[in-house]
């Protein structure tokens, strides 16, 4: 089964080395763009599929040339949260082993 990987984390994807990968320079959690911007999202996916069709070498990561406009200030944020940033250190969320519902209504709907 052929696969196409769409990633916003270049170094992590390079480390696991999938057969076909496409890279977008966007924040983690915004892999396909901003909320409610369907044309941006479609354009990004069109580029990913076109790039995947053109790949011939296993392990290729094609940069789709997609990023936010502006000065890249989100990268400063992405690179600065956490330890030593003034909030006391470890910013990672607790790894609880109960289902983490988005809404209370989801928990009820799931019979939980």
């Amino acid at each position: 089964m052929p696969t196409i990987c769409l990633t916003a984390a270049y170094s992590i994807t390079a480390s696991v080395n999938p057969p076909r990968a496409t890279f977008v320079d966007l924040p983690l959690g915004n892999t396909v763009g901003r909320p409610h911007d369907p044309e941006f999202q479609r354009d990004l996916l069109r580029r990913a599929f076109a790039a995947a069709e053109a790949m011939v070498q296993p392990g290729t990561i094609t940069d789709l040339g997609v990023g936010w406009d502006g000065d890249g200030s989100w990268k400063r944020f992405a690179s600065s949260t956490g330890v030593g940033s003034g909030d006391g250190g470890d910013d990672r969320r607790q790894r609880v082993d109960t289902p983490q519902y988005q809404y209370e209504s989801d928990r009820l709907a799931a019979g939980g």
């Binding site: 959690g29 396909v32 763009g33 607790q94």
Partner: peptide
């Protein structure tokens, strides 16, 4: 739901993930 990225935008529009 996820512990390692900002969920706010994706909860507005899950299409971004």
């Amino acid at each position: 739901t996820h512990f390692a990225y900002d969920l706010v935008p994706a909860r507005e529009d899950p299409n971004i993930v």
